[in-house]
Simulated scan of single mutants.
Amino acid sequence: MIKTEIIEALVPLKDPALIAMLAHFAEIHHYKKGEHIYDVGDMQKKIYILWSGILRCYFIDEFQTDITDCFMTEKGLIANTPEVFQSKGETPSVVGVEVLADAMVCEIPVKRIILMMQQYSEMVGLYIYCLHQSLEFQNEINNKRLYLPGSKCYEWFCEKWPEVDRIASNHQIATFLGIRSESLSRLRHQKRKIRLGG
C-alpha cells in the first residue's frame, strides 16, 4: 500500500492536494514488540498515527513506577499528547509509548503539520477533529475507571481490548485500571475458570 492510500485511510481530508502533501512528508515505520516510539522525556517531534498493532501509553509517577495511561488498538488513533502542537515538538514528553504487538505507524513531522495549519483552513479542521477524537477516547476511559468497581471495570476492559488482555502484563493492566495486581490476578483467574467451564 502506498503512502497516499494510507493517508487517505487515516486522515479525514477532502482536498487531494493536501493528502498528497501529507503523503510526501509522511513516513511509514514498522515497530517490533517491546520497542518504544518515544519515551518519557523525549521530544515528540512527529505526529504518530496508528495503522496496525497495539500501543501502550504510560507515565512515571513520583515513586518511579511505570503507570499505564491507555492502550491503543484502533486504526487512526494519534499517539501524541495534545500539547505537542503548542510546543511545536520542543517540550519533553510527560508520557511514553511502548509497542505491545508489532505495529505499523504513520509519522509526520510536527512542524510540517503546524505550517500547513497556518496555510490551509482544512488543516485547522483536521486539528479540531483530532482533539475531539482524543477527548472522546480519554473521556470514555476516565469515566469507566472512575465510576465502575474493579470487577466491572475489568469486564469493560476485556470487552474493549480483548487482544490486550491476552498479551499485556498484570502490572500494565492493573495500573491502567487503578487496582492492585493481586486483585487483577484473581479477576483474570475467575475469567479463565468461566471460559473453561470450571
Rank of each mutant, 00 (worst) to 15 (best):
I2M: 15
T4A: 07
E5H: 08
I6S: 00
I6W: 07
E8F: 01
A9H: 07
L10I: 03
P12C: 03
K14I: 03
K14W: 02
K14R: 13
D15C: 07
I19T: 08
M21D: 11
L22Q: 01
L22T: 04
A23D: 06
H24K: 13
H24L: 09
F25R: 01
F25M: 07
F25E: 14
Y31S: 08
K32S: 10
K32T: 14
K32N: 14
K33F: 08
K33R: 11
E35T: 11
E35F: 10
H36P: 05
I37R: 12
Y38R: 11
V40N: 08
I49N: 05
W51D: 12
S52D: 13
S52N: 10
I54C: 15
I54M: 11
I54S: 12
R56P: 06
F59D: 11
F59Q: 09
E62S: 15
E62F: 12
F63K: 15
F63S: 14
Q64M: 09
T65A: 15
D69P: 07
D69Y: 13
C70M: 08
T73E: 15
T73L: 08
T73W: 05
E74F: 14
K75G: 01
G76F: 15
L77R: 03
T81P: 04
P82S: 15
V84Y: 06
F85D: 09
Q86N: 09
S87E: 08
S87D: 14
K88H: 09
G89Y: 10
S93K: 11
S93Y: 11
S93A: 06
V94Q: 13
V94Y: 11
V94G: 13
V95A: 03
V95N: 04
G96T: 11
G96I: 09
V97Q: 10
V99G: 01
V99R: 13
V99Q: 01
A101Y: 05
A101Q: 02
A103N: 02
A103F: 00
M104T: 10
V105P: 05
V110Y: 00
R112E: 11
I114R: 12
I114Y: 00
I114L: 00
M117W: 08
Q118N: 12
S121C: 01
V124L: 13
L126V: 02
Y127A: 10
L131Y: 08
L131V: 06
H132F: 08
H132S: 13
S134W: 00
S134T: 07
I141W: 06
I141L: 14
K144H: 07
K144M: 04
K144N: 03
R145Y: 02
L146M: 04
Y147W: 11
P149E: 14
G150V: 02
F157D: 00
E159F: 00
K160W: 00
K160V: 10
W161E: 13
P162N: 03
I167F: 07
I167W: 05
I167E: 04
S169H: 01
Q172V: 10
Q172F: 05
I173W: 04
A174C: 07
F176H: 14
G178V: 03
R180W: 04
R180T: 05
S181V: 05
S183W: 01
S185K: 02
K191G: 00
K191S: 00
K191M: 03
K191R: 10
K193D: 04
I194F: 02
R195G: 04
R195Y: 04
R195K: 06
L196R: 11
G197N: 02
G198T: 03
